[in-house]
Nucleic acid binder design. Structure first.
Length: 585
RNA sequence: GGACCGGUGGAGCAGCGGAGUGCUCGUCUCCCUGUCACGGAGAAGGUCGCGGGUUCAAAUCCCGUUCGGUCCGCCA
């Protein structure tokens, strides 16, 4: 019978068999120690020369050989115990040792400090996964699935699996296309999300649906965004007309994941609801990190009469001047401020004006352009103290918010205000239904055209289309968007009008969303839902800064699986069957 | 599609115009009966990503290219 490493101390005096990998071998000439590792831990094996056959085998062992070892569990003598490992009080004196499989010298180092590059680790992921950290990540992920499933079942949600071979959707991200063999010339698409299916489930009479759903998007990745495929906790509830019902139902699960599952401190038990507009004004972002303050302060009124061109020009053309107070900002060096200036410029600012308060003096390149009363108003409204620096943004309101929002994050990182043991949650609500697309110079959907405009059909008649709100909400965790949802538009009439505002006719809507519109004609209940990004949430909960660290087999930044060498070329014959040919440019 | 950073024995890093490319880990041979990142003696292993240029001289500077990473665009 096989025994696990972790169980060895309980087996003192008896003969046991352990199987696993050689973590290290220490050959003393007349005595060999082997650290054997299995999924439960490490245990020390001892083999002496009087066991001639076993000793010979032990001399052959190398790192990561797979072995089976049988012997007596013995308590170590005082002074020989190793307090650094759980089984350090015992060792197994071997009677029998056999090699189950050999291992070549490793292409990556599994233990110790020299962790290989991510490229090597992905190429040899099957080795990388043997590391403790990766093992516990896999377990953690499985645990998280269990917590989520348990909660959803308790709340009487039914898990339904929706198709992976789905349809291309014209809105949103780039699709992965699958050529059809039986329907030559036509394509399936992998679902970007089960959005339409879950809404059809509502029409199908499922009161509450959920799924740990695979989603596919062919968009360029980031550190917090996987290439190709990712998982969502996807859910939808029928007979819900107010998004608050969804939000308050999901709060306990997410809070539980933060505290019980991840063992972190939650910033506030009450998860704040922040309207989009307010989030943009206070934090310069629709996904604010609430672990720190440094809110944006509007000085447009105080500086409305300023003759300083940098402030005057935006203010006279409808823009804004806002500021951010950085405590202890006086400690920033000139070159550090230059770095922040570059960041501000990269977000569209012309420069970065600032005032530093130090030793009772005002030190600033711009102070000479401001009046006494303006300076006083700035200090008064920002609450700046000695040692602080106030940074300014002056431009259109949108640019100011974007620039200062980015800087707020950068300052928090610089001054180490992002406590890794704290998780701050928030719901951002009331997204604008339509937004003006500066580049296309036209009105477009802000988020999702299938959510319900707040106020229904009448609201769409509003003069100012940009003031129309969507019943749509995102959950934010420490500055990451981890959930997006909304009350859906289940009314064909309203749906036509939502597109009509942008100049699309009935035919356009029916051509693209015919299946859903058709279903909605036959008694669709009002419904609402949302979807949580599992990978990103797990990343933040375990304190990783790269989402690939919480996935077993991720693709790299170029969409390549370095281990499996996918994507790859296919046979001519396979292409023929699909009525396809590769045309090289 | 764009910007920036990186590629040096099997792995991780140093060297950044001039002597023999150096260190740690690993590998191989030998020694060692209480180690636990064992120790000791020795050895092998490098087109310095690739191509071109500048120079008396290039791992080092320049240009191009490729691969990897971060960010912007993109991600309803």
């Amino acid at each position: 019978m096989r025994t696990y490493a972790v169980a060895a101390p309980e087996q003192i005096g008896s003969e046991i068999t352990v199987k696993g990998w050689v973590q290290s071998r220490r050959d003393h000439g007349g005595l060999i120690f082997i650290d054997l590792r299995d999924h439960t831990g490490i245990v020390q094996l001892v083999i002496r020369p009087d066991n001639e056959e076993g000793f010979k085998i032990a001399e052959e062992l190398r790192d990561e050989f797979v072995i089976s070892a049988t012997g007596q569990v013995a308590e170590r003598e005082d002074g020989l115990k190793n307090p650094n490992i759980p089984t350090g009080g015992v060792e197994i004196i071997l009677n029998k040792l056999s090699i189950l499989n050999r291992a070549e010298p490793l292409p990556i180092q599994l233990h110790g400090e020299n962790i290989s590059s991510e490229e090597q680790r992905l190429r040899y992921r099957f080795l990388d996964l043997r590391r403790d950290k990766m093992q516990s990540m896999l377990k953690k992920r499985a645990q998280m699935y269990k917590v989520m499933r348990t909660y959803m079942e308790e709340q009487e949600f039914t898990e339904v699996t929706t198709p992976i071979l789905a349809n291309s959707s014209p809105e949103g991200a780039r699709d992965f296309l699958i050529p059809s063999r039986l329907q030559a010339g036509k394509f399936y698409a992998l679902p970007q999300a089960p959005q339409q299916f879950k809404q059809l489930l509502m029409v199908g009479g499922v009161p509450r649906y959920y799924q740990l759903a695979a989603c596919f998007r062919d968009e360029d990745p980031r550190a917090d965004r996987l290439y190709g495929e990712f998982y969502q906790l996807d859910l939808e509830m029928s007979f819900v007309e107010d998004g608050e019902e969804v939000r308050s139902l999901m709060d306990p699960l997410i809070k539980n994941l933060v505290t019980d599952f991840a063992g972190k401190k939650i910033l506030s038990e009450e998860v704040p609801r922040i309207p989009y507009q307010e989030a943009m004004e206070r934090f310069g972002s629709d996904k604010p990190d609430l672990r720190f303050g440094m809110e944006l302060i509007d000085l447009s009124e105080e500086l409305s009469a300023s003759e300083f061109g940098v402030f005057k020009n935006p203010l006279t053309s409808g823009g804004a001047v806002k500021a951010i107070r950085v405590e202890n900002g006086a400690s920033l060096s000139r070159s550090q401020i230059d770095k922040f200036t570059d960041i501000a410029k990269s977000e569209g600012a012309g420069g970065l004006a600032y005032i530093t308060y130090e030793n009772g003096e005002v030190k600033s390149p711009i102070a000479k352009f401001l009046t006494e009363s303006e300076l006083a108003a700035i200090q008064q409204k920002t609450g700046a103290q000695d040692g602080d620096t106030v940074f300014f943004g002056a431009d259109t309101r949108a640019v100011v918010n974007k620039v200062l929002g980015r800087l707020r994050n950068e300052f928090a990182t610089h001054f180490e205000l992002k406590d890794p043991n704290v998780i701050a949650l928030a719901w951002i609500v009331d997204f604008p239904f339509y937004e003006y697309d500066e580049r296309a110079k036209k009105l477009d959907f802000g988020h999702n055209p299938f959510s319900m405009p707040k106020g229904g059909l009448e609201s769409l008649a509003a003069e100012d289309k940009q003031a129309i709100l969507a019943d749509q909400y995102d959950m934010v965790m420490n500055g990451y968007e981890i959930c997006s949802g909304g009350v859906r538009n289940h009314n064909p009439e309203v749906l036509y009008e939502v597109f009509g505002v942008l100049g699309y006719d009935k035919q356009y809507v029916e051509d693209r969303f015919g299946a859903m519109i058709n279903a909605f004609k036959f008694g669709a209940p009002p419904h609402a839902g949302c979807a949580f990004g599992i990978d990103r949430m797990l990343m933040e909960l375990v304190g990783e800064s790269n989402v690939r660290e919480v996935v077993a087999f991720p693709k790299n930044g170029s969409g390549v699986d370095l281990m499996m060498n996918s994507p790859s070329v296919v046979d001519e014959q396979q292409l023929d069957e699909l009525s396809m040919a590769i045309v090289t440019q």
